[in-house]
Design a protein around this nucleic acid. Sequence first.
DNA 1: ACCCAGGGTCATA
DNA 2: TATGACCATGGG
Length: 214
Amino acid sequence: MHILNRIFQQLLSHYGPQHWWPAKTQFEVTIGALLAQNVSWTNAAKAIANLETHNLLSAQKLHSIGAEAIAPLIKSSGYYNQKAKAIAVFLQWFTHYDFSFETLQELPTDTLREELLQLPRIGPETADSILLYALERKIFVVDAYTKRIFTRLGLLTGHEDYVAIQEYFHKNFTGTVHDYNEYHALIVKHGKDVCNKRPHCDKCCIENWCKKII
DNA sequence: ACCCAGGGTCATA
DNA sequence: TATGACCATGGG
């Protein structure tokens, strides 16, 4: 049993299921992934709620109004000009697949990932969030918490790039897609839970309960 | 007032 | 490759 599997079990038993992604549709997950970039989830959630209020939480409708009309509706998510443009470009790309997630599902994961990465403001974490939480592909989502927590645990040096960290999980974590879903959500939960002020803090995970895992 | 939050991009060395 | 600046709102 690899350490990554044991840490997952610990996190799950400690925090319980996180029920990600908090959205009703695959489209809402995707838009949410863009809006949540580098802002608190509550900020992103307000923007999504605002779109829903205006009955714009569908690809066709959102595509029809354009970036200039989207921007003021998502102000609460920050970077609203960049994000509005990103949503508009994504929707333009999505027209090639008839605004259909069924059609998207026909593509292999690697191809989909490369396509998504071509789009503005869709970097590795956002692309993987869409792949995992909207399309249910077995992809590990790496974020700043992942790097920080697992570096503190001594399992990473802190100098690995995104892909290297992702491969570490793909090779060693033997979970289902649902487990991949929970793992990332639990890491975010744990990252907020413990002291997250840079390198060291006494009452953090290492001193308190992460040692028990290892 | 400062820091950070479910990042990405671009310029610079 | 590796930093730094920038985007921008809202809560602590």
